[in-house]
Simulated assay, not measured.
Amino acid sequence: MTETDNKVVSIIFDLMGTTLEQSAEKKPGTRAGRPNYPRELRERLAAAACEPGVSVAKLARENGINANMLFTWRRRYLAEQQAPSAGLVPVVLLSDTPTEVVASSPGESRAPDMKPASPVGTIEIRIGRAVVKVDGLVDADMLRTVLGSLRS
């Protein structure tokens, strides 16, 4: 390594708050030949590898680890960042006024200017490009069935 490369490596270590010697310390009970890097170091390097314009192979080389290992850490880090949370989802109420349902017998004719009665409720669920829309009377059992089918 040239002197400039050594300076760059030391700057990176200073920014990360660790040194290779600190991260590679042998801990009792660890297997020889397969280092167990601290989780903080793995996450810091994976986050650094996600930055635009960063060469993952060069970053791995500068930190004395295998590039394939850093690629694996980065893939896991990105998966954790994109993992869906089990929290609440936003709900938008389009109209809070209930619509009126008018029952009519099959033989009864409607006036030409009357529109058919609109359904009582609508549930619309958007997941990515998929849209599930349920019109009409929607009770708890129907909602359970629709949401259960989305899981599978």
Rank of each mutant, 00 (worst) to 15 (best):
M1S: 04
M1F: 02
T2Q: 01
V9K: 15
S10G: 00
T18V: 10
T19H: 08
S23M: 14
S23C: 12
A24D: 06
E25P: 03
E25I: 11
K26R: 15
K26A: 13
K27G: 02
G29M: 04
T30C: 12
T30L: 10
G33Q: 05
R39L: 15
R42I: 08
R42Q: 13
R44N: 10
L45S: 03
L45D: 00
L45W: 01
A47M: 06
A48Q: 04
A49M: 04
A49Y: 03
A49R: 04
A49Q: 03
E51W: 06
V54Y: 06
S55K: 05
V56L: 01
L59P: 01
E62C: 09
N66T: 10
A67W: 01
A67V: 01
M69A: 08
W73H: 06
W73A: 03
Y77E: 00
L78I: 12
L78A: 05
Q81I: 07
Q81T: 02
A83C: 04
P84S: 09
S85C: 06
G87A: 15
G87Q: 14
L88H: 02
V89S: 04
V92C: 02
L94A: 01
S95M: 09
S95H: 07
P98C: 10
T99H: 14
V102G: 07
E108T: 14
S109F: 05
S109V: 12
A111E: 13
D113W: 10
M114P: 02
K115V: 15
S118R: 11
V120P: 05
I125S: 00
R126I: 07
I127Y: 00
G128P: 06
G128D: 12
V132Q: 01
V132I: 11
V134G: 01
G136R: 09
V138Q: 00
D139I: 06
A140Y: 06
M142K: 15
V146R: 07
V146Y: 02
G148Q: 12
G148V: 04
S149Q: 10
